[in-house]
Simulated scan of single mutants.
Amino acid sequence: MGGKDRCNGYSDIILKDSEFGDMLSLEDARRVLESMRLRQADLEMQNEELRKVQEAIEEGRRRLADLYDSAPVGYLTLNQGVIDEANLTASALLRLPRQQLMGIPFQQYVDPDHNDEYFKHHQSVLESNKRAACELRLRNSDGEAFWARFESVPFGRAGSDLGSVSLYTAIIDISERKRAEEALRESEEKYRALVESVNSVIVRIDNEGRVIFLNDYGRDFFGYSMDELEGKGLVGTVLPSEAAGHLNIKSLLAYMAEHPEEYREKEIENRRRNGERVWVSWTTKTLHDKEGRFAGILAVGNDVTQRKRLEREIRQAQKMEAVGT
């Protein structure tokens, strides 16, 4: 029945009703019917708006579900350590279909050597009711180990006991970073072993002229411990003040940064801790940070004191010979 037919039906009912028929005129009945039409139209508009809101909510839920599943981070819901929910990334990391993950204690995927760390993390989050993170070595269902950053946040009713509090947990695969760190550590160890084993002085100073590294040979050669030198200026310790000339150390370093070729190879008279003067042939390299700003100097020095003495003695002998002739 159309809207007009329904309204005509209402009119017949109103006009036939003996009680209201005497009370309502035809004009009054028309006004009532018009009001009913407007009300019906308003309800239909509200229903349409509600339908659109419902569709928007459903679309939002679908998008959130897609975002949850396609996130580059593995997400888990843990209830007393048991997996309740998992996204597709977590499923891929653990190498098991999502449905099969449900109900499995997460400890099953923790490397045995990291069980204590995992339990400490779990207990810490529950007791502090705060977000916490740690790094764990995990093993997927194929037994392959990988490193992960494990970050959890508690959720549950306030004041509830620990047994009713669950964890939202994010798993980020950091295996590449760990491999890079290990490679860097091995490289640094090899570099340090090389630096410490050479029979040359190797020193690094920052852009303020402070000593930040001196190898074993250099410490033995100059007679200083690293504690005595670290953070102190090069001038006034191994480098006599007069060696800097009229320039202060900052000005000297700034000049070296602008004219590195003048100091690439240079023989300088240095001073040991006991005051003894020694000659060192320095090869220097200016250092810069990622932004290209001057960061300091790396220098390798070799003791040429004996050669300098011989050269002086030869010159002295030549002078004496010239005087004698």
Rank of each mutant, 00 (worst) to 15 (best):
Q100A: 10
Q99P: 02
L136E: 08
N115M: 12
D113G: 10
V153C: 02
W147A: 02
Q54A: 15
D116G: 05
S70Y: 14
A71I: 14
I57T: 12
G81T: 06
D66L: 14
D69V: 14
S124E: 09
L94G: 02
N140A: 04
R61A: 06
L50C: 11
D84Q: 15
R51F: 13
D116M: 11
V153G: 01
Q80W: 01
A148K: 03
K120M: 12
S141P: 02
E55Q: 15
V53Q: 15
A133T: 09
I57Y: 09
F150S: 05
R61W: 07
H114M: 05
R149S: 03
T89S: 02
R62G: 11
N79P: 00
S128W: 12
Q123V: 02
E135R: 10
Q54G: 14
F119N: 04
D142K: 09
D111I: 00
A90C: 03
K130D: 13
S152C: 01
Q107I: 14
F146V: 11
C134L: 01
E55P: 08
D116K: 13
R139N: 09
Q99E: 14
D66W: 13
N87D: 07
R63Y: 12
T89W: 02
F155I: 09
A56C: 09
A145F: 14
E48M: 13
V53W: 05
N129G: 01
H122C: 00
A90L: 05
A56L: 14
T89M: 01
D111V: 03
P112F: 06
S152P: 04
E117D: 10
D142N: 11
N140G: 05
G143C: 06
R51E: 15
S91R: 12
V125K: 01
L126E: 04
W147F: 11
L138K: 05
Q99H: 12
V153L: 04
R61T: 09
L101E: 08
S152T: 12
K52C: 08
S124M: 09
T77I: 11
R62Q: 15
A132D: 15
N87M: 11
F146D: 06
E85A: 06
N47T: 04
Y75C: 08
R149V: 01
H114E: 03
L78K: 10
K52E: 14
L67Y: 11
K120D: 14
L94F: 02
Y68D: 03
A133P: 00
L64S: 15
L96R: 13
S70H: 14
R139M: 15
N47D: 07
V53P: 01
R131G: 06
D111Y: 03
F155L: 04
M102L: 11
C134V: 05
V73Y: 02
H122G: 03
I83F: 13
W147D: 06
L93I: 09
E117R: 15
Y109I: 04
G60R: 13
K120I: 10
L50M: 15
A133W: 00
L50Q: 15
H114R: 08
D111T: 01
E144N: 11
Q123G: 07
D84M: 11
Q80H: 13
L88F: 12
L101S: 07
D116L: 14
G81R: 00
W147L: 01
E49L: 12
L101A: 06
L67D: 09
L126G: 00
L101G: 10
W147Q: 07
V82E: 09
Y109H: 08
A148F: 05
P154R: 02
Q100P: 01
F146M: 03
P112R: 06
V53E: 15
Q107Y: 10
S152F: 03
Q123F: 04
